[in-house]
Design a protein around this nucleic acid. Structure first.
Length: 747
DNA sequence: GTTAGAAACAATCCT
DNA sequence: TGTTTCTAAC
């Protein structure tokens, strides 16, 4: 495709982004301005100009983005596209380390530790160092270490910088010990994958030259979210020609807590003085009103590159806003509205997304979605691969793959129960430490550990089992290996004997996991156990989203970055939740600006329709909390908002409720407390206009609640439109509730 | 050594 | 409210 042809499908700025191939380029790409389009065509253009595909590297933020880019490049280029290096920061580093980790004292079959693994290691570290985890929590130490690693401060440098501060002493020794353990386990945590790669490139000119020569053209997506160590990595990979093209939007920088350094993008022109700067400000995604809302919110931020997005799209519907009495009603409304939109043929399920600030909010939404029989998929929360049963199976695989991985071995030594308890465990661990060997190596010579006594007879069969699998490993595919493990250990049998819903769900998860192994096997030319484990370790929640299935997506605002939907709901628009309580109390206005950017990201996900909802009260950790409408909502001009009165969806709501929701695992209890659908709807449409009704009870009266049972009224407070009643229930204790929907009966 | 039930505790967002 | 850790009894 020549430049004239390209001009037919790209605007002037986009074209410039595609064809400015030499030297450093900064593309400031506003939301929905077609940056993926620019990146993919840029890759295609480079190849057409005669650049070899293997000389091109594109770093993305998620595996999903990488996959999409690869697919789109494939469609334009025809052949050779698979040779382009398209990967995330983490998987790029793994690829480099798998090849050269031996140069920094690791074995190339290293394990990758996730957050759970890191925490287990840190627990051990605190135990050995006698650090009181009541005073300093493991999580706190880990986050200090992680922040240091983001800034490229290794354990020695950290010690040097903090030696004068006695309060830092435990952190210094913990950091040292933690790193020592990772090394002896032959493992990297997430941060080390990048930090160690940077160290490798820095101190090994041979490796550095190898990659600098390989990657003649580098592109980085979502550049505003890179941190210091990632910047350094990019800098080290970029050869003297400096053919580096970064794409990002400072207004969408939302990962400061993860070390993202916004100055990487704000100061790009200082880092690379010869840089060409290109601005993409035309939005192709959203309606005029949605964009106006976004612009009006984000312009309240001070530290940003001034720009205003514009669009030629149509005006569109007003932004809808609605406040409810409780999070339950909020969730109910969203579920029903989605159903009604579907019924009217406006949107299909997969065109709708519900976005929220915290994962905890997903629970109520999920409940209502089940009730209403709406297909949904929750992104985030408990990662599939961090479920207990999956981690158990993974630990077996890791033990077979990397015997030095103490963590994996220790996890499964007594799973399922083999009668090897804490005492034997401790004896083996002591022996391993004294002899300077790995835990598994100590198990192999259990006969030598005299203190074990009879316990040896429990250990030898385990070691024999693992050794047998190691030997026969090459005869199996990964899926077969997993089946073999499950058969021999009786893991699944045990679960099915248990027979509870939970156990059955675990079996299903294991089946799904085996499926993943099969898919991996099919999709890779040279599948290896290490390769599979690595893929599993680096998979993000968002990567598991399947675009072809029809379901509503529920996820955090962070998770939504880079995605778009026709119909978006932003739930929980309350001060204290979004922006979060911590942001409000903290007087650092940087934090508030980051929250605002997050809001901007949320708004700009919507193409056609945007609905914001809030609840006056919601249950947080067992307590009712009350909140007012988010300040961000108030930053949107009234003229483009449809306020608190909610329009009835024409005549279809009766029909809507005729389709009785199929009962799933939503408990019958819930069903019992559920008023009729019509009443539900009336209540929802009434929303914030609930009229005060005269109460039939007073303070001291006995009342009955449909779910909580009987109790005594302790207080009645005038809450404006409604009464807030405090009741001391016999069974469940004190609860606060609004009279109009608590439906309390005097007895 | 195992297990169940009580007590303690929890504060975003993520690779 | 939901999960993790501690304790006591089998």
């Amino acid at each position: 495709m020549n430049v004239t042809d390209l001009h037919k499908i790209l605007n002037d700025e986009q074209l410039l982004g595609v064809t400015t191939t030499e030297g450093p380029v900064l593309i400031l790409a506003g939301a929905g301005s077609g940056k993926t389009r620019v990146l993919t065509h840029r890759v295609a253009y480079l190849i057409e100009q005669g650049v070899e595909p293997w000389n091109i590297m594109a770093i993305t933020f998620t595996n999903k983005a990488a996959g999409e880019m690869r697919e789109r490049v494939n469609n334009i280029v025809g052949h050779g596209a698979e040779q382009v290096w398209v990967a995330t920061f983490h998987s790029s580093c793994v690829r480099i380390l798998r090849r050269f980790a031996d140069r920094i004292g690791f074995d190339t079959n290293f394990s990758i530790y996730d957050a759970d693994d890191s925490k287990s290691v840190m627990k051990e570290v605190c135990k050995t160092l006698n650090i009181d985890t009541k005073k300093i929590k493991e999580k706190r130490i880990l986050s200090v270490i992680s922040a240091a690693k983001d800034e490229m401060i290794n354990e020695e440098e950290f010690a040097r910088q903090n030696e004068s501060d006695f309060r830092m002493a435990p952190y210094i020794s913990a950091y040292r010990e933690y790193q020592a353990r990772l090394r002896s386990n032959n493992a990297f945590d997430f941060d080390d994958l990048i930090l160690k790669t940077v160290e490798l490139l820095k101190y090994d000119p041979e490796v550095r030259n190898f990659y600098q020569e390989k990657f003649k053209y580098i592109m980085v997506d979502e550049y505003q979210d890179t941190n210091t160590v990632q910047f350094e990595l990019v800098r080290l990979l970029t050869g003297p020609a400096q053919n580096l093209c970064v794409v990002g939007d400072d207004d969408q920088s939302i990962y400061k807590f993860r070390g993202a350094n916004i100055y990487n993008i704000l100061n790009f022109e200082q880092h690379f003085p010869s840089a060409t700067v290109i601005r993409l400000e035309q939005n192709y995604r959203s309606t005029k009103r949605i964009l106006e809302a976004a612009n009006n919110v984000i312009r309240n931020n001070e530290g940003r590159k001034e720009k205003t997005l514009w669009t030629e799209n149509e005006e569109g519907e007003k932004i809808r806003f609605k406040q409810f009495d409780s999070a339950y009603e909020e969730a109910e409304f969203i579920a029903m509205d989605i159903k009604s939109q579907l019924r009217r043929g406006n949107f299909k399920y997969d065109e709708c997304a519900v976005l929220y600030r915290t994962n905890a909010q997903s629970r109520i939404l999920e409940e209502k979605f089940i009730n209403e029989n709406i297909p949904y998929r929750i992104v985030g929360g408990v990662n599939f691969y961090s479920r207990k049963e999956i981690k158990d199976v993974l630990a077996y695989l890791k033990t077979i793959d990397n015997g030095d991985d103490d963590l994996a071995v220790q996890r499964i030594i007594n799973v399922p129960k083999r009668g090897i308890g804490a005492t034997s465990f401790g004896k083996v661990a002591d022996y391993a430490r004294a002899e300077g060997m790995s835990f598994y190596a100590a198990l192999m010579e259990a006969e030598e550990i005299t203190s074990l006594g009879k316990a040896v007879t429990k250990i030898t069969p385990f070691v024999e089992f693992i050794e047998d699998l190691k030997k026969r490993q090459k005869d199996f595919t990964i899926a077969e290996l997993i089946r073999e493990i499950l058969d021999q250990t009786g893991y699944v049998d045990e679960l099915s004997a248990e027979g509870t819903d939970e156990a059955l769900a675990r079996i299903e998860n294991i089946e799904e996991f085996i499926n993943k192994a099969l898919i991996y096997q099919q999709e890779n030319e040279a599948p290896t156990l290490s390769g599979f484990l690595e893929e599993v370790a680096l998979i993000a929640d968002i990567d598991r989203l399947d675009d072809d299935e029809e379901y509503v997506v529920l996820m955090t605002l962070h998770g939504a970055k880079g995605l778009e939907f026709e119909n978006v709901y932003m739930a929980g628009m309350e001060d204290g939740l979004f922006p979060s309580y911590m942001t409000i109390t903290d007087d650092d206005d940087q934090e508030m600006e980051e929250e605002r950017r997050l809001c901007y990201v949320g708004i700009t996900r919507a193409k056609q329709c945007l609905t914001m909802t809030a609840a006056k009260s919601r249950m947080v950790r067992g307590e009712w909390q009350y909140a007012s409408i988010s300040r961000f909502v108030k930053e949107i001009p009234k003229e483009i908002m449809e306020g608190s009165v909610w329009e009835k969806p024409k005549n279809d709501f009766i029909e809507l409720f005729d389709a009785a929701p199929k009962k799933s695992f939503a408990e019958k209890k819930k069903e019992a407390t559920k008023p009729t659908a019509a009443a539900d709807y009336a209540r929802l449409t009434r929303g914030s206009e609930i009229k005060k009704t005269d109460l039939e009870f007073g303070i001291g009266d006995r009342v009955a609640h449909i779910k909580f049972g009987e109790g005594t009224v302790e207080n009645i407070a005038d809450g404006g439109r409604d009464y807030e009643v405090t009741v001391n229930f016999d069974r469940v204790g004190v609860k606060k509730m609004f009279a109009s929907f608590a439906k309390l009966k005097k007895i």
